[in-house]
Amino acid sequence: MSTADTYELAELRKAAIAVLSGLSAGHAMAAWLSGSLVEGLGNPSSDVDIFVALPGLISEDLPLTRRGEDHGILGLVEGGVRYDVEYWPHADIMNLKRKLDQLPINDPQRNNLHFLTYWESEFIHRLLVGSPLLNEEEFRRLQGLFDAARFARYLMDTAIRRADDAFDDAVGMLRAGQMRMAALRARDALGFSADALLHAHGVTNDKTKFRLAKLDRLADTHAAIRPVADRLWRAEAFIPDTPPETRAYVEEALRFSSEMTERAQDRVRG
């Protein structure tokens, strides 16, 4: 993180603490800042995400924009910036920790797709990459509850499932002469395989919109990823539109997808 990024994070923290104090979150066990800005992936229009761990249940008096089964969200705008404040009861955080611990890994009989809900997955990632706002010691304890490697493995397995679906769709479409559909589905397979590769390197952010930025960042520390990132960009950016060229594109995309997925799997096979 550069000096400018550090400065921006400090400013962000100051503004987030001001937002929190306006919400009388004094009874919070811990609070932390998270989201794309904290990860250095956002832009000036990005939302700011604040998480609050509560010792008990979410009070009915708490003004919420959305109330889920295990958490509540308050959306508000302050100084032209949109803040999402997520409240999570400690008991639900502990339930989620146990759920992740029970995740079956390396069990070919189990399909783990959707084992975690969108919100659960988001919560774990955003806790793992969060920056403390209130009660740093308690925040670190909560962070330590979640096995980041296990979570990344779950995300990798999920990405591979999606890649496999897209891969087989593309093969079937190509054989049926559905060239454009095959090309788009092969491109999907490429993206999911790239996600698998990222997760195999421990990346727990699963947002597709940041895929290229995450690959670029990974390439800064793993030189072998650079040609993968460049090749992916070329494949994502251009699909030829004459049948022979489209066929060649699909075949090449599926080979590249296989390469990335196998690299991801080889990395975790040990």
Partner: peptide, 15 residues
């Protein structure tokens, strides 16, 4: 191009 190698806890296989 239409064959993918995958690995699970039981070993590698072609699909």
């Amino acid at each position: 191009y239409f064959v993918r190698k995958r690995w699970d806890g039981g070993g590698a296989h072609l699909v």
